[in-house]
Design a protein around this nucleic acid. Structure first.
Lengths: 116, 116
DNA sequence: ACCTATTTGTCCGTATGTATG
DNA sequence: CCATACATACGGACAAATAGG
């Protein structure tokens, strides 16, 4: 894979790895459908612990950028699909919190427009 | 603290601990401003590893339910403030993704109303 | 200003479990 | 049944931020 990380940086290694992969995804160096290297392999290449890479993968998974499954490995998600997925997730969160706070749909929609 | 966890459950321990604490927060058994027990102490009480408790704390922090700081420990956040904080965060995410997808404010607001 | 103790954060290593192929 | 790959949990080491003396 060849990613640039700096062990002496104050930025945590798992964040550096996640950021480097995010860039690789954005530039299509890693394309949708393509497999990321197994965490164990990437860890040995970067000379970091397996958990450090797994944590970076988990971050990208939570961001909807990749799919991570036991036994199968990690696959790049179509970026447009990922974006819609994040939008739906965020909308779900907004609705849940708005309900919790007793806001009406119109009040919530207004907040969205105002935030634009 | 006295939380109920089941080591034989398929549910991960850190999720069980987070869920138990969430309940304690909801029922005001843990009140805003109050300190949670140091992770090390709670870990010994529950007979689990320190990291397992820290992971549960980190989840609650990401949910905006508590504030976790090195050296200071973890403090319960006012639930209403936490709810507004999460709403603002979710709205921010929605706007960011909607912009990414080229949606207009009105289109996005409509999606919110539809999701209600 | 210094030192110490406390508490969380990161990273490593190891072991074991679970899902997939 | 077996190999692969991620998931959880444990334990240990050290760092960084905070609080108190």
């Amino acid at each position: 894979m060849h990613l640039e990380i700096d062990p002496s940086s104050p930025e945590p290694l798992f964040n550096q790895i996640a950021a480097a992969l995010r860039t690789a995804l954005r530039t299509n160096e890693l394309s949708p459908g393509e497999h990321l290297p197994p965490a164990k392999l990437l860890a040995s290449e970067l000379k970091v612990n397996l958990h450090t890479v797994l944590r970076a993968y988990a971050i990208l998974r939570d961001e909807g950028l990749i799919e991570v499954r036991r036994g199968r490995g990690s696959v790049v998600v179509d970026q447009n699909r990922a974006s819609f997925r994040r939008l739906d997730e965020a909308i779900h969160q907004v609705v849940a919190e708005a309900r919790q706070l007793g806001l009406s749909p119109d009040q919530t929609a207004d907040r969205i427009r105002h935030a634009f």
